[in-house]
Design a protein around this nucleic acid. Structure first.
Length: 222
DNA sequence: GCGACAG
DNA sequence: ATCTTGTCGC
């Protein structure tokens, strides 16, 4: 595990070194427990609230929650989100009593300038399957998917390589940007995201994690 | 130099 | 990401 109190240049080097460890391969086994990760901050503060919420993949009921609160050591800079949020997310992961089969991150995976978004970073460090499911695009180009639930289009980088999918998790609403984090294929990632988005645009694991971190932050205001 | 830019 | 009330619509 590398340090987190680093410089901008060191962060870039770490991404370039770890990117080759990312494995885009079939899931090692069935997903029975799926986790969602998210972090929250107050307006001008670096006090960070992070949580990992674990759901039963079949019933989508919460079975465990890992929490962490600490000070972000890195600023938010597009392309370097993991250096701001991963420390707290990893700490929250350590608080879990169960072992999730998959982790869905509210960020990019391979759909990143250096093919190493937060989802990849978490996957490689924890050595588990991860998926990046973001609400906005960081980089790449794509055509808009049909308005139907489940429709999708590929996201391409400058070289024409597919780096992710724009997926319509709900009809008539904005899509989400899905990409491989680690130890999963893009088609499987899309399938899992659809499976965990039965009603809302945002996948259940992330939705729960988002609600949790906001509860934590509001409670901390006392 | 200009525009883009996860959370 | 966060700041913020009501409001339009299924």
């Amino acid at each position: 595990m590398h340090d987190w109190d680093i410089t901008f240049e060191q962060a870039k080097q770490i991404q370039q070194e770890l990117r080759d460890k990312v494995r885009e391969a079939p899931l090692p086994g069935p997903v029975r427990l799926v986790a969602g990760a998210d972090a929250s901050f107050s307006k001008g503060s670096d006090d960070m609230f992070a949580a990992i919420v674990v759901l039963d993949a079949k019933t989508l009921e919460v079975v465990d929650v890992g929490r962490a609160e600490c000070r972000a050591l890195f600023p938010y800079v597009p392309g370097y989100l993991s250096f701001r949020e991963a420390p707290a997310l990893l700490q929250a992961w350590e608080e879990l009593d169960v072992e999730p089969d998959l982790l869905v991150c509210d960020a990019q995976g391979r759909a990143h300038p250096r093919k190493f978004g937060l989802a990849c970073h978490m996957g490689v460090l924890l050595d588990i399957p991860t998926i990046g499911s973001a609400k906005n695009l960081l980089c790449g180009e794509h055509r808009d998917p049909a308005p139907d639930k489940g429709s999708y289009r590929s996201i391409y980088d400058r070289e024409g390589e597919v780096i992710g999918s724009v997926l319509r998790t709900r009809a008539e609403v904005n899509p989400v940007y899905v990409s491989v984090g680690h130890k999963i294929t893009l088609p499987a990632a899309r399938r899992q995201i659809m499976r965990f988005s039965p009603k809302y645009r945002i996948p259940e694991p992330i939705r729960h994690a988002h609600n949790e971190v906001n509860r934590m932050r509001r409670a901390a205001l006392e």
